[in-house]
Amino acid sequence: MGELDLKNLRIDYGARMIIRDFNLAVRNGEMMSLLGPSGAGKTTILKAIAGLLAPAAGDILIDGQSVRDVPPEKRDAVMVFQKPLLFPFMNVAQNIGFGLRMQGQPGREARRHIGAILALTQLEGLEHRKVHELSGGQQQRVALARALVLKPSVLLLDEPLSNLDANLRQRMRELIQTIQSETRMTMLFVTHDQSEALMISHRVALLLEGRLRQVGAPRELFYQPADPEVARFFGGRNFFQGHVRDGKLHSDLGVFPVGPQNGNGHVRTATIRPEDIRIAPRATGQSRGLRGRVVKTRFEGSSTRVVVACGANEVMVLTPEDAFRPGQEVEITVPPEKIRLFPGD
């Protein structure tokens, strides 16, 4: 079992409130990401769950039992830190066996567990290495193995990939995913990298300024952000205002059919993702798109970011074609079904 429940958690640092009214339920066997910019208090929450700092208010439940008064060493939640933090005076096997030794497991059984976990984390053959002889990726795998071998109800991962280079990150992410789906261990994965969160988890919880903004499946957060700030965090641009009349959004960018379920009359904020807008050089003759002029372009490799001035508005477009230059007259098309209307205030 491995259910984690955080109820009305408040965490203070000195006189400063870092986390307030934090509610989150992680289901058994779930891989949940806690996503937020640096300094949002993600690590603080993990430390509170692990018992390394005491919340000012609220409760933490593991499998339905409050663990507020349980010291960290007795909690069934193990934390893996951003840095590997391998004990330098022990070799790989001793590091992995540290927790088992704390539990008083007999040597033979411990060795069996360590062997199994070495295989799972692809560390076979390295058990007698000194930790400073390992590469960064190997060190992080040992840190992961050291926590996994304890089979905790909840595994807390604090940006364990952030010190690795891009290739290694990808491999390590896949490894964590594989391990998670094999062991069905409940994991709470902290990261500031939105694509990492979307890739790795069943559900994502977005934390902005000490508050949980939205919890849901990766696609839900990406395609149906709860508010403009959530959309902005996931790379959303192009926010514009308009009012809805008879199922149509009347805005500066034009009139778009948005469906009859949207109420009438209110001024609403809408957004369209840059990659959803189509852009083309202006054609002579009849055109059905919005006319504009390229203000600037930014080449990003597989795509190019183009800022287009349409009247008083600037629209950002992400296109796979690197065919536009500043000053060029273009035509953009906004597919109405890709417009996201935020609930009114």
Partner: peptide, 23 residues
């Protein structure tokens, strides 16, 4: 000295006294 080592050890099941002596 990085005190995170001690937090890590405690999370792995070491009591305060054991952390002092063993970490």
């Amino acid at each position: 000295y990085n005190p995170d080592f001690e937090d890590q050890a405690r999370s792995l099941g070491a009591s305060r006294a054991v952390v002092m002596a063993r970490v």
